[in-house]
Amino acid sequence: MLADFAQFTASGLTRGAIYALVGMGFAIIYNASNIINFAQGEFVMLGGMLTAFLFTTTGLLPIWLAVPVAIAAATIAGVAFYRLAIEPAQRAGLATLIIITIGGSVLLRGIVEVTLGKREFVFPAFSGESNVQVLGASIASQSLWVLGTLAIVAALLWWFFEKTLFGKAMRATAQSPLAAQLVGIETRHVLLVSFALAAALGALGGVLTTPITLTRYDIGIMLGLKGFAATMLGGLGNPFGALAGGLVLGLVEAFTGGYVSSGYQDAIAFLLILTVLMVRPGGLFGRVAMDRV
């Protein structure tokens, strides 16, 4: 009983960590631009696919070098996406921007599909296939890598957003571009950095989880949507809300899969977010602003 519970908790947190990383990316971009970047899940795919390509498939690089190179490449893709697709359309309406980011998602997926193919990719866990026994559950060492990295990333982000001037400016650019400009920070740079940061977070998530879940050119769609749900759950525009939302989502999925029905694991995320939005239209930790007339 306890062992099951511990097992589901561990797999829920691992699963939730990836939603959290994707969700934080959503929140960071939303803060800077009021844009929901539906291409966010593709960077998870890119991180995993590129590492696998560089390390396993071609053996070009050792794993400790393949990982940063893959993350850097995904980050560049994120920046390029911003410069080529988002920046020229800044003033477009909600539906137009949604479609542009979905277009970006389809494009990234298509490029990988054509260049790397449709098969599954994987590379070995960082510390081998060892397991750790906790409360009768056996937890893959890679899960510890995932959770440990998430904790470090969260701490670094907290420091960045709370303690650095640039980070503070980034949090509020969407609400008041003027405030950012007053402290000498250009909106354009904030946007660029937020797209880069979000892409890097996603790619990192892909690198960490690929040894556990495998990866394929089309895994980004569902991950993107789940990350979006995590962000909404936590309250749009708050990276740490997204972190919490992601972990909650992962846990709920794991427990539903474990105790109820594994077939409806994917549906539960959306059922949860629908229910939450009905009760609290601003998410668990957020509020919807009222129109002032």
Binding site: P88, A89, L97, G103, V106, L107, G110
Partner: peptide, 20 residues
């Protein structure tokens, strides 16, 4: 067919930028 996704992605982005 093989380039379908690449083509659709480009068409979507380009249309939205040039004809919002």
């Amino acid at each position: 067919a093989e380039y379908k996704h690449v083509a659709i992605g480009i068409v979507l982005i380009a249309t939205m930028i040039f004809m919002p």
